[in-house]
């Protein structure tokens, strides 16, 4: 019930904004005059016809950035509860987080050294 009380307004907000976005988009879609032809509906490529699918190979470094982001974001999420309750933690709680951060920094330096943060 506690959870419901705190996040109930967020749920209503979500429903309201979903309805609002749907109404705005839908009303324009229905009301505006639609006069489509093949050229208008083809995807944009600087004036000429698109000659291949856009979803082909892309640089693997984007993937690498996403994985690094996952690692560091999980670390950030770990730090939030720790930082809020720091004054109540015994020293083991404090030092184990510092140890975790130390290892993370070692990993970060390694990632830097092997060049996975480089964009040339």
């Amino acid at each position: 019930m506690f959870f419901l009380k705190e996040y109930y307004p967020v749920l209503i907000f979500l429903g309201f904004s979903l309805a609002l976005a749907g109404v705005i988009f839908g009303a324009s879609f229905i009301l505006a005059v639609s006069d489509a032809d093949t050229e208008k509906l083809s995807s944009y490529e600087c004036g000429f016809d698109p000659y291949e699918d856009a979803r082909n190979a892309f640089d693997v470094r984007f993937y690498l950035v996403a994985i690094l982001f996952l690692l560091f974001d999980i670390e950030t999420i770990f730090l939030f509860p720790w930082s809020v309750s720091l004054s109540q933690l015994p020293s083991i709680g404090y030092w184990s987080m510092l140890d975790f951060l130390f290892e993370l920094v070692v990993g970060f330096i390694y990632a830097w050294q092997i060049g996975s943060l480089d964009w040339e």
Binding site: L14, S17, A21, F25, A32, V33, A36, K40, S43
Partner: peptide, 28 residues
């Protein structure tokens, strides 16, 4: 508001419509 909504033929229509709604809802 009165402009025509263009849905490209080779686009994935459901996701194509969903994306702006998603951005708008999250920002609200």
């Amino acid at each position: 508001f009165v402009k025509e909504t263009v849905l490209p033929t080779n686009a994935n229509i459901v996701l194509f419509v969903l994306a702006p709604l998603c951005t708008f809802i999250l920002s609200l």
